[in-house]
Design a protein around this nucleic acid. Structure first.
Lengths: 166, 166
DNA sequence: TCTTGACTTGAAGTCAACTTCAAGTTGCAG
DNA sequence: CTGCAACTTGAAGTTGACTTCAAGTCAAGA
């Protein structure tokens, strides 16, 4: 995300083609993350910065949005690797536009929907569970926790296979 | 990942006041967890077992439910420490009853509800975001990601503070 | 009894996502 | 120009949740 075509001038202080920039400390304060986390994200390829002549990082203001996306996606349970992949759909050489973010948001929303639906299903099953005392129901909330077992191994593993178990 | 096939339910070695028991291998197969994970849970106080004369673990069938609860709670984002605390409300000396599990389920459901509501709120904000292009909205989905920032530090941190940022 | 797969232990290793540290440099206010 | 907070780096440490390993023991079918 470097180099904008429009040569924004600048006096010495902000001699940056991206326009006004912020320091890592300010980005940290505004995003609620530690500076160490931001440096870590940079090392991991989630975030980019330009440097001053002295070597200090300077971030475009759009980095705030980027960081915000990372945090929101993490809340959803995505790993940094997955988030990096998602962010890869943003343009590399220019500041992301409205449409770039819209595209990303839509994909994000799909993941969100899936996550919500999973939890709602779990809740529904738990409801049945409470109703029946959870001890003899074939469709107990805990009967088949699905997702993780599925990810981990073979087909449907049953977490609780025996009715009237105690 | 999971060690191989059927551990046997022990038949005869069941001079056990808790009734029929299963081996760690069987518990693993049925729960979708590795035996190492089950041993780890035991070390962490989340799970208990009796032992055969030879020192092998034997689990009551109710352990299946317990393990299932652990997994479901983890899905929700609880740490093992928090889960251990929740499980502490189950009786120590006897097999949990229907009512024991009902009580636990209700608390669990509250957490589930909270989590779902949080995600739904995030989704709503994201909707607004997509509608407006996410570039000048004060109530952008990413504008204030709330939870984590709140946990981490002072009051409301704004993740994206500047409209028309890019 | 023999065999073989399942089991035992404690210690060490792994992975993600950071944080902490040490020692030195930069940049801005005064 | 000085002072000092904020910045730089790479390496090592931390936490949570396990997994892997080595070296041996147990249990159940033939």
């Amino acid at each position: 995300m470097t180099s904008d075509s429009s040569g924004h001038t600048s006096d010495d202080a902000d001699a940056n083609p991206l326009g006004p920039t912020i320091t890592i400390g300010e980005l940290a304060a505004r995003s609620g993350l530690a500076t160490s986390a931001l440096r870590f994200y940079e090392k991991e390829g989630l975030l980019a910065s330009t440097r001053t002549r002295g070597g200090q990082r300077r971030y475009a203001r759009s980095s705030l949005r980027r960081v915000a996306f990372v945090r929101a996606a993490q809340e959803l349970g995505l790993t940094l690797g997955e988030i990096r992949e998602a962010l890869a759909s943003l343009p590399d050489g220019r500041t992301p536009t409205k449409h770039d973010w819209q595209r990303l948001s839509r994909g994000f929303r799909a993941t969100l929907d899936a996550r919500i639906m999973g939890l709602v299903r779990l809740r529904d099953r738990l409801d049945g569970c409470i109703g029946c005392g959870c001890l003899s129901m074939k469709s107990c909330a805990l009967y088949n926790a699905g997702d993780r077992a599925a990810k981990r191994g073979a087909g449907a593993r049953y977490l609780i296979g025996d009715p009237d178990v105690g």
